[in-house]
C-alpha cells in the first residue's frame, strides 16, 4: 500500500476519526503535566525571576508558528504536484491554527519583554519576523476566503504559499540586516552546547510535545470539517446539475 492512499478522503476520515481522540488526549495530558511541572516544580531563574516561566508557552508557540507554515508549504507542494484534495484542505485547515500560534508567541513575548527589556515591543529582528509571518498567514487565509471555486482557491493559495515562503526567508534576512536586536538566542537547538538549564529542559520538552500534539489534533479536526464541507458542496453542486 502506498503512502498516498491516506490522501483518499474516505480513508483519511476513517483513520483520523480513530487517531484524533488519542492525539488530543495525549497532547492535553502532556501539556498539563508540562505546565504544572514548569510553573510549580522548577526554580526561578537567577536573572529573570518568575518571568522565565512564560517560556513554557512562548517557545512551543513560536516553534509551531514556523513549523505550521512549513507544514502548509509541504501540503501546498503536494497539492500542486499530486493533486490530492486532502492535502490542500489540510493546508487551509492549518493556517488559522498557525496564525493563533503566531499571536500567542507575540503576546507572550510582549509580556515577557516588558519586565526584561522595559518595553512591550521592540523592533527586534525576531519579533519583527514573527509579525511579518503573521501578515503572511493573514494574507493566505484572506485569499482562501475570497475565492469561491475551491480548486482555484487551492491552486492560488498554494502558489502564494510558495512565493510567500521565499519572501518570508528574504524578509528574515532583511530584518536581521536592518536591526541587530535584543532577543536572546534560541532556547533549544540540537547542535549547540549551550541550551537552557536541565531543570527547565524537561518540562519545556513536555510542553512542546503537548503543543505539537494539540496542534496536530486541531489541524486534523479542522481538516475533517473542511472535507465534510467540500463533500457537502459537491453534493449540492451535483443536485443542481441533475
Amino acid at each position: 500500500m502506498s503512502l498516498w492512499e491516506y490522501a483518499n478522503p474516505k480513508r483519511f476520515m476513517q483513520i483520523s476519526a480513530a487517531v484524533l481522540p488519542w492525539v488530543a488526549g495525549f497532547g492535553g495530558v502532556c501539556l498539563a503535566v508540562g505546565l504544572i511541572w514548569g510553573f510549580f516544580g522548577t526554580p526561578e531563574d537567577y536573572r529573570q525571576g518568575a518571568t522565565v516561566k512564560i517560556m513554557y508557552l512562548h517557545v512551543p508557540a513560536a516553534l509551531l508558528a514556523i513549523n505550521g507554515w512549513l507544514m502548509m508549504l509541504a501540503a501546498s507542494l503536494i497539492w500542486l504536484i499530486r493533486r490530492h484534495h486532502v492535502s490542500a484542505l489540510a493546508a487551509r485547515a492549518a493556517a488559522p491554527v498557525g496564525l493563533t500560534m503566531t499571536v500567542i508567541a507575540l503576546v507572550t513575548g510582549a509580556i515577557w519583554g516588558q519586565p526584561m527589556w522595559g518595553t512591550w515591543w521592540v523592533w527586534d529582528p525576531r519579533l519583527t519576523s514573527f509579525l511579518i509571518l503573521g501578515l503572511f498567514y493573514l494574507g493566505y487565509i484572506a485569499l482562501w476566503e475570497a475565492i469561491d471555486d475551491a480548486d482555484t482557491a487551492a491552486d492560488l493559495t498554494s502558489v502564494l504559499c510558495l512565493v510567500g515562503s521565499v519572501f518570508a526567508i528574504l524578509s528574515r534576512y532583511a530584518v536581521l540586516f536592518w536591526n541587530q536586536g535584543l532577543h536572546q538566542g534560541a532556547s533549544l537547538s540540537l547542535d549547540k552546547e549551550e541550551n537552557v538549564a536541565d531543570v527547565f529542559y524537561f518540562p519545556l520538552l513536555l510542553c512542546i510535545a503537548g503543543f505539537v500534539l494539540i496542534f496536530l489534533a486541531l489541524v486534523l479536526y479542522r481538516t475533517r470539517t473542511e472535507i465534510r464541507l467540500r463533500r457537502l458542496q459537491a453534493l449540492m453542486a451535483r443536485d443542481r446539475l441533475l
Binding site: H84, R230, Q233
Partner: peptide, 16 residues
C-alpha cells in the same frame, strides 16, 4: 451531458 457518479457511501478523490 456528464452523468454524475452515484456512490452513496463511498467518496473518492473528487468528493463525488
Amino acid at each position: 451531458k456528464a452523468r454524475a457518479l452515484i456512490e452513496h457511501d463511498d467518496f473518492n478523490e473528487a468528493f463525488l
